[in-house]
Design a protein around this nucleic acid. Structure first.
Lengths: 205, 205
DNA sequence: GCGTGTGAAACAATTCACAGCG
DNA sequence: CGCTGTGAATTGTTTCACACGC
């Protein structure tokens, strides 16, 4: 099964399965059925089985899936077993919160540089990092080997900074700015926008 | 067109259109075509037209859409013209960042109470609020009229707190905890989980 | 001509239902 | 018997293509 044959919706569900399996393994559960896993993550058992079937046969008929085995398979598929360096652009309140968010570290993501173009912020410490000027972007990306960047700048700056990131060799962006980015198709962009989420939920209220 | 006839994917795109139209209106642009709007938000022009057609006929043939008119229509559809009170549970680093996030205010959302069950945190000021104990939940929801809650607690606590929110009358939850919530179908839950986003992007790298 | 609104066609995702195996 | 893996059927979404009006 080639990467491009797997629908993107499937890829976006795998982390939910992985998270759930990780909790189950921590609790010492050894086996899980597609039914039980589906109940936890909120999808049908058929969907779980179909999703997994894109990548192989991980279960045993009549029994279910071995929790740690499936967890490790998903880790490999998602490359969550690797350590990933991340460059963060934007040292505002959000940037601070992200640097101090422990979950990155525990899931193998390493926020290894923080940059900002505000001279007031450059040089200030955040966590055990120091804010670097935007001129250091290419150097930061090379030093850290980062392929992923987190964009936590104001909307007006987002497109321009995103282009600089791509020019510096970044391949994937997690964008917290409330702005759609127009970038080459091979760059992967994920959007996190609580306002957009809230606006779609108020439609239903 | 009844609420339930509109696919949820469409509802999730409307905020992106609204955001873009708002920027365009600020810049003084008076008219926009589905083509141009699509280029900005990254969807096809046919999709824009189809999405809007669920709610009415807002454009003019040969011309396009009047920016402020369409913006106001979308605001009404999404109920983004109303002011919404929000109760925030969780006064950790994330809770602090959310309270200080100015975009809520500017998009008509009012973070009107913050709660936490940690006695150390209760009573502390955040922005111009003061952290209240979880026992005040029902009172907070009633005082503020909140129908929406933001959940910013550790994963272990999320399900339990979510149930308390529902019992207190909350109808929609924006969940920052890395945990799927199992709740009655009429409760609307949106998930924000940067780790899950990162894990799906590393699949492609 | 240009650009919307919309059925029809194409494509994509989910669910069904069951063969097959432990 | 229980539960996976999977084609087939169903359901949902996007794109096409064109009539219509400015």
């Amino acid at each position: 099964m080639r990467r491009t044959d797997v629908p993107d919706v499937v890829i976006r569900r795998l982390p939910l399965y992985l998270r759930c399996l990780t909790y189950m393994a921590e609790r010492g559960q050894s086996v899980v059925s597609s039914q039980e896993l589906g109940a936890w993550v909120g999808v049908s058992s058929a969907q779980i089985r179909k999703d997994l079937s894109y990548f192989g046969e991980f279960g045993r008929q009549g029994l279910g899936y071995e929790v740690t085995y499936l967890r490790d398979q998903l880790r490999t598929i998602l490359q969550a077993d690797k350590r990933w360096s991340i460059v963060l652009v934007g040292a505002g309140a959000l940037g601070h919160a992200l640097v101090n968010y422990r979950a990155f570290e525990s899931w193998n993501y390493d926020l290894s540089a923080v940059l900002d173009n505000d001279p007031e912020k450059v040089g200030q410490p955040i966590g055990d990092l120091r804010v670097r000027p935007m001129e250091d972007l290419v150097a930061s990306v090379h030093e850290t080997g980062a392929k992923i960047a987190i964009l936590a700048v104001p909307a007006e700056a987002a497109q321009s900074v995103a282009e600089q990131l791509v020019a510096a060799g970044i391949r994937a962006i997690l964008n917290y700015a409330p702005m759609n980015l127009v970038l080459p198709a091979e760059i992967h962009v994920s959007y996190i926008d609580p306002i957009a989420s809230l606006q779609s939920t108020t439609f239903y209220l």
